[in-house]
């Protein structure tokens, strides 16, 4: 449904987006990750037709966003960053306006507004002026606007920004449910959200795509993928470290003492190594192990290792 082909956007001499290509099909929820200023919002603005690209092509539902933007825009629901809304209108007035401009009139308009109000839990504030709403409600009002016409494509720029944990949970559930029938692309800083909602994630940094895959695939790129963490008591850290370091598939071992408990982590030679857990189990059969588990990999670590500037990477080491 969304096709981005070699998209480039220049702001003066600055390359905000530098040759990005990806597609999103119906039934997919694409998470858009990246540090601040990586070009996430710019990409979304080009997809929604707010700003024209400097190079490359963007099409939505087969309509080129430069040549036939109106047809493309009809298919899109968009939640811009910071969720702007007309502050001088009431919630239902604002949603009614959004419905009307999407060509919904009379009964269809009323139904669409009611549906959006219900889906975004706005019943208690529907006759209130947007100006008087708290941030969470205002955010959901703008979200409601984006789904008012039940669009086939949803573009959401940080949809859970500024919401409390309960509201975040609701919105994530909503996105996941809608993702079954729509093509959704959303940006976020929160990595747990990617696990909770996305079928696929893209990490962009300085205008380029640096990783693209399912959350599981991305996690596999972490040093932590396949690592084994165990807790033992009644042994010294050095002994634990020495013994575990001898394992065939172990790359390095960290061990830390907390009172008389030792927490040790064995990192695999290759990410996602399957044999490591078995080897550790065999080696520690006679030890007083209290807890042992295999790590699935950490997204935040992948994110950091990919997007940190090279100098900062060296410092981190």
């Amino acid at each position: 449904m969304i096709k981005v082909d070699n998209l480039t956007k220049l702001f003066g001499p600055k390359r905000a987006v530098d040759g990005i290509s990806f597609t999103v099909e119906r039934g997919e929820v694409l998470g858009f990750l990246g540090p601040n200023g990586a070009g996430k919002s710019t990409t979304m603005r080009v997809i929604t037709g707010f700003i024209p690209p400097s190079g490359g092509k963007v099409s939505v539902g087969g309509f080129d966003m430069v040549e036939d933007p109106i047809s493309g825009k009809r298919l899109i629901g968009y939640l811009p960053e910071n969720a702007p809304a007309y502050t001088d209108m009431t919630v239902s007035g604002f949603l009614g306006f959004a419905a009307e401009i999407r060509g919904l009139r009379g009964d269809a308009k009323k139904k669409a507004v009611n549906r959006a109000v219900e889906m975004c839990f706005l019943q208690s504030v529907r006759h209130q002026s947007v100006e008087t709403l708290s941030k969470g409600y205002r955010h959901r009002t703008c979200f409601a606007q984006s789904i008012i016409h039940d669009p086939e494509v949803l573009v959401l720029d940080e949809p859970t920004d500024g919401l409390d944990p309960n509201q975040k949970h609701e919105i994530r559930g909503l996105i996941r449910r809608m993702g079954e029938k729509k093509a959704i692309i959303f940006s976020t800083h929160i990595l747990e959200e990617v696990d909770a909602v996305c079928s696929r994630a893209i990490i962009i940094d300085r205008g380029r795509i640096v990783a693209n895959g399912t959350p599981q695939e991305l996690r596999q790129r972490s040093d932590w993928a396949g690592a084994v963490t165990l807790r033992v008591s009644g042994m010294t850290a050095n002994v634990v470290k020495e013994k575990l370091s001898q394992l065939r598939t172990a790359k390095r071992v960290t061990a830390e003492a907390q009172g008389d408990r030792i927490t040790a982590t064995v990192f695999p030679r290759t990410a996602g190594e399957q044999d490591l857990t078995r080897e550790v189990l065999e080696a520690t059969r006679s030890w007083p192990v209290e807890e042992l588990h295999t790590e699935v990999g950490r997204l935040d670590e992948v994110f950091r290792s990919i997007t940190l500037p090279d100098t900062a990477k060296e410092q981190a080491k």
Partner: peptide
């Protein structure tokens, strides 16, 4: 200032 321009111009109108 409020940012609604982005909303308005991404709606299916010229």
């Amino acid at each position: 200032r409020v940012g609604t321009l982005e909303l308005l111009l991404t709606m299916p109108i010229t």
